[in-house]
Write a protein that binds this DNA or RNA. Sequence first.
RNA 1: GUGAGUGUAGCUCAGUUGGUUAGAGCAUCGGGUUGUGAUCCCGAGGGUCGGGGGUUCGAGUCCCCUCACUCACCCCA
Length: 430
Amino acid sequence: MKFQAPKGTRDFFPREMAWRNHLIDAWRRVSIRNGFEQVDGPIFESLDLYKVKSGEGIVNELFHFEDRGERELAIRPEFTPTLARMVAERAGALPKPIKWFCTPNLCRAERPQRGRLREFWQWNVDILGLETPVADAECIFTAVDLLSELGLRPEHVRVKISHRRTVRHILAKMGVPEEGMTGAFDLLDRRDKLTTEEFTTGATKLGLDADRVARFDQICRLKYGVGKLDQMRDQIGVDEEMADLAALDAELRAFGIAPWCEYDLGIVRGLAYYTGTVFEVHETSGALRALAGGGRYDQLIEIFGGPSTPAVGFGMGDVVLSNVLMDKGLMPEDVSPRPDVYVFAATEGGAAGLSATVADLRRAGLHTRFSYKASRSVGKLIKEASASRARFAVILDDHSAHGRVSLKNLDSGEQHVVSVEELLKLVAAK
RNA sequence: GUGAGUGUAGCUCAGUUGGUUAGAGCAUCGGGUUGUGAUCCCGAGGGUCGGGGGUUCGAGUCCCCUCACUCACCCCA
């Protein structure tokens, strides 16, 4: 019997675990400096919680099971329902605005492919209780702050922004009837995957004539920089429902992230519950799926039984993010913790004091490793110390009985004979 | 759920028209030389060639089935 990790899941050997921690540390660090507080919920919830938001169809896409009390449960495929439940439960008592983040692992019963696995980690950032586009801009700023923290730049990734109400207004003005809106959004979303014929057929079904089909097609593809909303007004001829976007535009500039952002009316997001701003972070070559996606969902908390609460947020998964960093050559070689010192004995006399020295160094708070080898070959042991990525080698020899050791800086190669007290000082000073 | 591609050591791969006991490099482990990270030398472990069936005197190699992985579709909360 041979076992392997289940389809779409990953084992985290030390290297991978170090990377996962590095990423989650970055998520946490950036969240905190942007004023968000960390929360978490259970890894499984009542299956109904997910049906409320997404309908029966969701059941095939998640892992669900029954407990011994015949309760139907599901492993969390997303965090938003839990968040909504938590907010609805204490809505009255929580100080506003609510700014929360979370770094849950999520599971979806989908077929794995590039950028998509069955278990992954996702950074969730949400602001609840604020209607102002400042909150939308702050979410986008936080996402950009993280991307920047990991070495990405506007030439690598771009935040593509649209607005549900603005787009709805444009579509209505073009003659798309109210009942055709869902179909129109779907068409917008899938434009890049459709042939011209398929697109035209779809648009015609919505009641658009050839002229308007062409304009619709054009609108899907138009992109505008931050600060260029006037161009959008002129080219599309849109007048109303622009105030929200204009306010967001001003904030994006004020936050200093204009170069990272662009308006792209082809961004829809599949979710029916978005009500205003929607955005996705894409790698600029367009080769990979979205790194992150989010938007405003002002009615969701009510659906979960809470009071009417405006909300905006986004999610960013670890898989595509790692893919992008790898593709751009920004994946660090090794982010495992570096030992401060690596101790070994060059003589039998030195070996007598090995364990005691290690214990002293560890009690002093140093990340201390030592050689388990019987070899007294200094060259071999230095090599071992170096392979451990330690900053210093501590060499014990026959003088060590008198409290003197050789301290070698493995980065510079410098070596001095020092007392243990001096050693602690030198290592602490870097 | 649909389709395509790929499966030989931990990794990258070689393996002749089917022919003896399946190989290399890297990695791992042990040892040796040089009292200081290199280089070098010796050695070891690790494979039911993804699995099953078939053809054949003989299958890593040919055929069928199956499984896994990868990629694309559906979907993407």
